[in-house]
């Protein structure tokens, strides 16, 4: 492999990894607080791309307005999802909530098929995003460069919120000890809504960037990235935001490495995440950056 192709693959891997990281954070934050695999997170991601699509094509908004609206609406949808599907079951066994998550994901997918139609749609790409950059011998589309930059900005903002604001402190408290946080006067419902909103907004950013890079929209497009990003969150250590980012990059770079190493293996690309998951769970069940917690009886 020449240096040129290596760099090309590296850039692609980084940008795919950034997309996975954005989605994985949503999983990890929700899991950290509610101990729930939000199966519908991938579908929220799908909805974001469709909202952006319709804002541009039907409502003829400029791309930046469309993206902003998509992010805000998706955050709202995430909050509504939690209110409707998870809040009523919060005191039920965890299995019930998980089944509810599966049901919600099922519902969103089927609704999307009816409302948006099952046929693939082409994501509208504004001219500024379709430029090709040529750096030395490596030619890359500008989206591939934009993705990691936007991701970095989003992560920076999230990091600020979680570590420097009062809401962030409350979030950390809730994820550490749900009941104690409640006793300290933290408004649990607000914090959970906020978490879902933030996670969904990041998923929306991920979805829009995904649409720019892989411009084909189908109602079931969220399933595979959703599953993989949950795995990314587990690999990094679930409940840990930095871990989710790390997991996302490991997954993205790993997948591209498989495709790049030999075309014969490219069919197994989707299996990579799952194999990695099982290996990680066997040797380090709490993930790379997770903390060990003993089971209380």
């Amino acid at each position: 492999m020449s240096l040129q192709t290596f760099l090309q693959h590296l850039v692609n891997g980084i940008s795919l990894g950034s997309l996975y990281a954005l989605l994985a954070i949503g999983y990890t934050m929700v899991y950290g607080i509610l101990r729930l695999i939000n199966f519908a997170h991938g579908d929220i991601f799908m909805l974001a791309t469709y909202i952006a699509f319709y804002s541009v094509t039907t409502f003829l908004l400029p791309w930046w307005a469309a993206f902003l609206i998509a992010i805000i609406l998706t955050a709202l949808l995430g909050i509504i999802l939690e209110r409707a599907a998870y809040r009523p079951l919060r005191s039920s066994p965890r299995i019930s909530i998980m089944i509810s998550a599966i049901g919600a994901s099922f519902l969103i997918e089927n609704l999307a098929i009816v409302i948006f139609g099952g046929r693939p749609k082409a994501f509208p790409i504004a001219p500024i995003f379709s430029k090709i950059l040529v750096v030395g011998d490596v030619s890359i589309s500008i989206v591939t460069v934009i993705i990691p930059i936007v991701t970095a900005i989003a992560l920076f903002i999230l990091n600020y919120i979680v570590n420097k604001t009062k809401t962030g402190m409350a979030m950390r408290a809730v994820s550490k000890d749900y009941d104690a946080a409640k006793l300290m006067g933290i408004n649990i419902n607000y914090i959970i809504s906020f978490t879902f909103g933030a996670g969904s907004a990041l998923a929306a950013i991920g979805g829009i960037l995904w649409g720019l890079k892989y411009p084909q929209l189908i109602p079931l497009m969220g399933i595979m990235p959703g599953l993989k990003c949950f795995i990314a969150a587990v690999i990094g250590g679930i409940g840990n935001i930095k871990g989710a980012v790390l997991g996302g990059f490991i997954l993205g770079l790993g997948e591209i490495a498989i495709v790049a190493s030999s075309p014969a293996l490219s069919g197994y690309r989707d299996a990579f995440a799952f194999v990695l998951l099982i290996v990680i769970l066997l040797f380090k069940p709490t993930g790379l950056m997770g903390k060990n917690s003993a089971e209380k009886v």
Binding site: R94, L227, A271, F274, V275, L277
Partner: peptide
């Protein structure tokens, strides 16, 4: 390997295995 895990991890690991079988 998988049955040593519990709850959510078991769910996601078995789901993973069924996807791996499908990919294979």
């Amino acid at each position: 390997p998988v049955l040593r895990l519990n709850d959510d991890y078991l769910a996601i690991a078995t789901l993973g295995f069924s996807e791996i079988i499908r990919v294979i």
